[in-house]
Write a protein that binds this DNA or RNA. Structure first.
Lengths: 232, 232
DNA sequence: GCTGGCCGTAAGGAAGTCGTGAGCAACCCG
DNA sequence: CGGGTTGCTCACGACTTCCTTACGGCCAGC
């Protein structure tokens, strides 16, 4: 988690850097408004902490400059306690406003609150591709880029098995693991239906189902997903 | 924009109700924790204002009860100024914390900041179009651009379901997600009414209701909204 | 080379899910 | 108090999914 700290007071910068780094955050600093804008562009922080009283550029203008193109959460840290200042900053696009002096624990809690809902906004799509197949886990969707644009339909059970295998690329997934994870902890007696679902998955996903390249059998043990580019 | 105000002090309730209604907000009130939870389920507010010092149920427990199934923004209004209280509430899932007494202008600005990023489809147009249908989220209206200019009427439940689906284009929306988001956390036993509402939505929105093109069933898992131009 | 065990494949029935229509109770509003 | 709307239950047919059973092929060990 990367945080940009913009303040013109070197002491505050230093104090925040130490405190936040100790909490595991990756810290980028800026001493004035233009630098804050530039470093937001170059470093893509997950949160911007902004002091309103910086030289060169009004704090409000920095907020507006950011909001013109970015939805990054903005936390204002200011010495001004006047309600009018808070209203102006919040309406310009800031997400929270803390007045100096502040309790460091409260600041940290507000940082957590602001960064918590981040994944809901701009997240990468967890997509895994192999061969002509694209697996989109967030959308629960599989499509073949090559043969026809029609999406491939998987049943819920097929999905669970594919997830277990693809999310552990290269690793062996034992038959017992598959059975307990898909059918429940009490379900360890396999009468042969696991082979059946693997056959169906291969029929739908493998270029040559009879000679599986990605969903490989490990004799007597279980199955393994081999990603593109992996040897063996 | 609907706001739930939960406080055990009738005077505060009354004052906030008047002030917020004057700003155009739709206000729902609750006098204790259980009522706040129940009215959140039944009224689906866009923001929950919570007093920590309510009887019957701890404020923290109310936050947890909401966060178990809802992502609605929570604004804590409390008389406690101690940093530890703020940390506890924010870490439990609250999004902002204001201490009494507060400037009403600041409170309004913080409400605007919290509700600003509400629509899950951030910063996009609040209008989504597919086929001959135009869905206006800000005006809560649906109209058919093709056959006649008269607006299509949706019931509140139909609207909730359509929102969940359209705001997650291409993504799978689980049956369980739909049930908890629309009917509340305790409502997981589906006797078949979800199919019914989907049928009604398709009857009103789909060109050929019997062969849905936009509100697609994913067998055994849930439903999916397919936007125009997407493959499939 | 032979046998036993494991794997892949196919067919078929049981069980579950979905779409649809009919119908009833609760609620809102005039 | 009455009409219309909304929310929900029940029942039925069509379809999909799940799982069992059965059979043939491949590899290991003897």
């Amino acid at each position: 988690m990367r945080i940009l700290v913009a303040d013109d007071d070197p002491q505050i910068i230093r104090a925040l850097k130490v405190t936040l780094r100790a909490r595991g955050y990756d810290i980028v600093t800026a001493a004035d408004g233009p630098e804050a804008l530039a470093k937001t562009i170059s470093h893509h922080p997950d949160l911007v902490m902004l002091d309103l009283g910086m030289p060169t550029l009004n704090g409000i203008e920095v907020i507006q400059g950011l909001r013109g193109w970015s939805q990054v959460p903005i936390l204002i840290v200011s010495g001004r306690t006047d309600a009018a200042d808070k209203v102006e900053a919040l309406d310009a696009g800031a997400d929270d406003y803390v007045t100096k002096p502040f309790a460091i624990d409260e600041l940290l809690a507000r940082i957590r609150a602001l960064t918590r809902r981040l994944p809901a906004g701009e997240e990468k799509e967890p997509v895994v591709a192999f061969g002509d197949i694209r697996v989109d886990f967030s959308a629960k969707r599989v499509s073949a880029s090559g043969g026809g644009a029609e999406p491939i339909r998987l049943t819920p059970t097929e999905w669970r098995i594919l997830e277990l295998l693809v999310l552990n690329p290269g690793k062996l997934v034992t038959r017992e693991t598959l059975l307990t994870q898909v059918w429940g902890p009490n379900h360890t007696a396999d009468t042969g239906y696991l082979r059946l679902y693997l056959a169906q998955l291969r029929k739908k996903l493998e270029p040559i189902p009879a000679h599986p390249r990605y969903l490989v059998t490990v004799l007597g043990m279980g199955y393994r997903f081999i990603a593109d580019g992996s040897s063996g």
